[in-house]
Amino acid sequence: MSLLLDIASVVAIAGGAFFFLAGTVGLLRFPDTLSRLHALTKADTLGLGLIVLGLLPTVDSVLTGAKLVAIWLLVQLAGASVAQLIARAARQDRPQGVPQDGPPP
């Protein structure tokens, strides 16, 4: 049982690390601000979720697990809100460079 849990942990954490890597590659390679934001925040939210999921079987108390989940929720909230704020600022700065996924302002 503990071996199975360990394998699940490793798989989830490796998956999380992969999403972080993918998000970072997207941040470096995507052409415009909105796509870069998309890559960064979405992939990181999923990646951190997987890492927290992978760490949960290894914690020694319920409180520590709850803290990990709380951290994930807070990062989700911060990431999503800040992505919206930066996107808004980017659009106000450069109205002519409207990306494909947004209507012209």
């Binding site: 807070l74 909230l77 911060a78 809100s81 919206q84 704020l85 808004r88």
Partner: peptide, 15 residues
């Protein structure tokens, strides 16, 4: 202030 900022400022401070 944008709606997003207001939303964040309502949700985050209690925590």
């Amino acid at each position: 202030a944008s709606d997003t900022l207001r939303f964040l400022a309502q949700l985050l401070p209690p925590v």
